[in-house]
Nucleic acid binder design. Structure first.
Lengths: 200, 200
DNA sequence: CTCATAACAGACTGATTAGTCAATCTAACA
DNA sequence: TGTTAGATTGACTAATCAGTCTGTTATGAG
């Protein structure tokens, strides 16, 4: 899989990711990417037909990695509550440990031109979370509010925690903060009957 | 307050807001703004020294309007829970009724170049919400988690609801959805002792 | 070694950009 | 009426951009 060329291609991808995060898509000319990656202009366009194709490649790669990270230690037979709490923790940890990639995704989501087709696709990728939330509602573990609402708030809250930690305003204990955040999110969506903070 | 020139200036501001939402900051050349607003190139730069100054003006204006909307019907002597629930409702309604302005703000937040100084300033503007949350924690109405965490999640969840409604995936009853969303948010941050959904 | 194919280079181009500037218009006031 | 200050104009510019083109090097098969 590692062809002889891969290092230049990889250098472009990684340099671009960094610059996009620092300066935004449009604030980063291709010339800047090639200069920093120490490759020629032509090399970039040899691997990626357009600048947009480069952005999309980065997006798809990260999306895959993210999905992978989210699924870690999730067993279908586990109770819904545990699965959701684990997905939540996985996402926060991934975001904190992959700050640049997290920021790239945030930027991508809010880019008006791009988001149209990609937003749909991105949502579809994470439909398994949607399904788990749905199951939680069916089983009575979650409040009987619309799935879409719960899913949205779950995602937004989790992202907010990552941003808080990355901005450095989260105090010292990151692990403790993550636990507290999961409790807040869980108490919001969990059915009152269920224990507010079930045993881990 | 309405000088003789105000209409051209206003036309630029409004046209720019629309285009920025549809196409992004960098996807919108100043030439496009002036063409659509039916003013000359020079006129734009007569009122706004740079494109960035134009963006910043729009940002500051919207931020003020938003703050105004958030404060509606808030009385300092009301219990914290009611204040928070009301701010929440105010924000969601403002976002839904001012979709373009809401989208502009979202875009602004995620723009790497700009956000640096403005993000700080924006946060400071909404410190009164921060204070209410702090008071809620002190009075025992909210969970004793860090103020920053609760504030962040409060804001993120609220934004998520607006996005959900604007995307049209929220089902039919917007008012019902808002009420449900407020319950979810409140149950997340409220202290378990307090009634999960206090009387309105 | 020969040849083909893909990797790589970087000067170059046409289009586009933010921003300038000298000229003209408008309105208020003396 | 003449003067002045601000509003308005749009052709213009210098810089910059994504992407091209022509050529050179590396690799690997026969």
């Amino acid at each position: 899989m590692d062809g002889p060329h891969t290092d230049k291609r990889q250098a472009i991808l990684e340099t671009a990711l960094g610059l996009f995060c620092e300066r935004g898509f449009h604030g980063t000319p291709t010339s800047m990417i090639t200069r920093e990656a120490e490759v020629a202009t032509g090399t970039l366009f040899h691997y990626f037909s357009t600048k947009e194709a480069l952005i999309e490649t980065i997006y798809l790669t990260i999306k895959g990695e993210m999905r992978e990270a989210l699924c870690a230690h999730i067993e279908p037979q586990d109770p819904v509550g545990e699965q959701i709490r684990r997905i939540c923790a996985n996402y926060i940890r991934w975001g904190v440990e992959n700050a640049r990639k997290f920021q790239f995704m945030e930027q991508f989501h809010n880019a008006p031109q791009i988001s149209a087709h990609a937003h749909e696709e991105g949502m579809a990728q994470f439909s398994f979370v949607h399904d788990i939330v749905q199951r939680g509602i069916d089983e009575g573990a979650l409040k009987p509010h619309p799935t879409g609402l719960q899913f949205s708030m779950f995602g937004a809250s989790t992202g907010a925690v990552v941003r808080l930690i990355l901005s450095g305003n989260g105090g010292e204990g990151i692990d403790a903060l993550i636990d507290q955040a999961i409790d807040l999110i869980w108490d919001g969506i969990a059915a009152p009957a269920a224990s507010p903070t079930p045993p881990r």
